[in-house]
Structure formats: C-alpha cells, structure tokens
C-alpha cells in the first residue's frame, strides 16, 4: 500500500438513516492496488459503509476523500465517472434486459469515449467471465445466481473503475461459484484494480485481502493486515467460529 496517497480515505465519518446513527467515527483507508476487506456480523454497518461512500446514506460529520480530493456531496452516478464502481448487494441487475445490454449499461457514464471503453471493457469482462459471452443474448433474469453475480461484477467493470466496491459478493452462492468469483477478484487486483470488499464470510474475505477492518455496531473495532487478522485469536473466536468446527 502507498501510505502517502490513499485512493479512498474516510476520516471520522458518522452517518445514518433519519434519527438513527449507524456509523460512528469511521476511519478507513484504501491504498492504490489494495484489496481491503471489511468484515463483521450482520447489522454491523458494513453495507451502510459502502452506501455512505457512494452517497446513498448522508454523511453527518467527517470527510470522505477519493484520489486525494474531498467528496463533498457524493452521488453514485458522479463517482462512477470518477472511476469508482459499486457492485450492490442483491446484484440489482436489469432482469428483462440481455446480458449484453446490462454490460453496455455499465459503460453508460463513460462520456465521449464510450464506444472505445465499451469495446475494451467488454473484451476484459468476457476474458474474466467467458460464460457471459456465451449468454450475451439471454435476459439477465434467466442466468443462475452465480452467473448473475459475475454479470454484476462485469457490469461494474464496464466503467473501467480504479476502485471497485463489492457488497457481499458471496451471498447465496455455491462454494464452487464463490471460488470462481474470488479468483476473478484476485485477477482484477493483479491487474491493478483497487477493491474494497464488504463480506460476511470473514475467512473467505481475509484470505483474499491485503488488509482487513472488523466492524461491530457501526464502529471499526480492529484493523490490520489480513494475515494478522486471520491469526488474531479474538477475531477467530468472534467472527471465524466456523474454523474451530472445521479444525483449521
């Protein structure tokens, strides 16, 4: 990680819905080229964190900076144009539209170079997830859960993002499919894409991440290199209980 110029930096961020404050004094940095995992139990505030970064939940205090510049009023569509893409929880694909149309929509905000970006990004997505090329003319709603998740990631990649935010990409998927998705994430990181991953499956996320942050009731309670968190006894006990059952 390049400590001097984090790609994304949250400082003392408080955010919430209505009167309820969900995030309390969140500090988080994501360096260029890193894969950072945010783990925690259900309701810890992980998804709210991503929604706050893209502007879907208002910031009450604190600052969010992207590429060194403060994002005063974040809006998802503006951030996409600045190279930040979100793969939302539940995928939110456009079901009746074809796979190709879904992917092309991912390059919607690419501006004047849209045609070139679409061609280039489509080739990259098809290389990463060849099944999407095979299913190009199928409505997205007819894909399997795993293929839909691949399409959601692929759609986000169509804007050629520098920073990819993923919300629970393993949710409801079979282990083999999860392995395929995470292998693609590894490949993306190798290509230089920075990834902020929110994931309930802590072991899986930390195994693929460079660094991790543990959230509990809207606060970051622990952070550090992923390998250290994997070895941390308190993390193992509280968040990775399944390991003991598996004897790992």
């Amino acid at each position: 990680m390049s400590e001097a110029t984090p790609l994304l930096e949250l400082a003392s961020v408080r955010a919430g819905y209505g009167h309820a404050e969900v995030l309390h004094d969140i500090d988080l940095t994501v360096g260029e080229g890193e894969l950072v995992a945010v783990i925690g139990a259900n309701g810890a505030g992980k998804s709210t964190l991503l929604k706050t970064i893209v502007g879907l939940v208002p910031v009450r205090s604190g600052t969010i900076a992207y590429r060194g510049a403060r994002v005063a009023t974040p809006r998802p569509e503006r951030l996409v144009r600045k190279g930040l893409a979100l793969v939302p929880e539940g995928r939110l694909l456009f079901g009746p539209m074809t796979v190709r149309d879904n992917l092309e929509l991912g390059a919607y905000g690419a501006g004047r170079e849209r045609r070139a970006v679409t061609t280039r990004a489509l080739a990259r997505v098809n290389e990463l997830f060849p099944v999407l090329e095979e299913r190009a003319d199928q409505p997205a709603e007819t894909l399997s859960g795993g293929e839909q998740q691949m399409l959601a990631v692929g759609r986000a990649l169509m804007s050629e993002p520098r920073l990819l935010l993923l919300d629970e990409p393993s949710l409801g998927l079979a282990p083999l499919v999860i392995a395929e998705i995470f292998s693609a994430l590894d490949e993306l990181r190798a290509q230089g894409v920075t990834i902020l991953l929110v994931e309930q499956d802590a072991r899986l996320a930390l195994r693929h991440a460079d660094r991790g942050s543990v959230m509990r009731t809207g606060r970051v309670v622990l952070e550090g290199p992923a390998a250290d968190l994997l070895a941390d006894e308190s993390v193992r006990t509280i968040y990775l209980g399944a390991w003991h059952q598996e004897g790992s």
Binding site: P88, F94, L105, Y108
Partner: peptide, 12 residues
C-alpha cells in the same frame, strides 16, 4: 429495473 442499479451504472 432498479434505481440503485441504474445509479451504479452512472445514470443520473
């Protein structure tokens, strides 16, 4: 299809 999905694609 989805307002958030559209926003995630850069649609105003």
């Amino acid at each position: 299809g989805s307002e958030l999905g559209a926003q995630a694609c850069g649609v105003d």
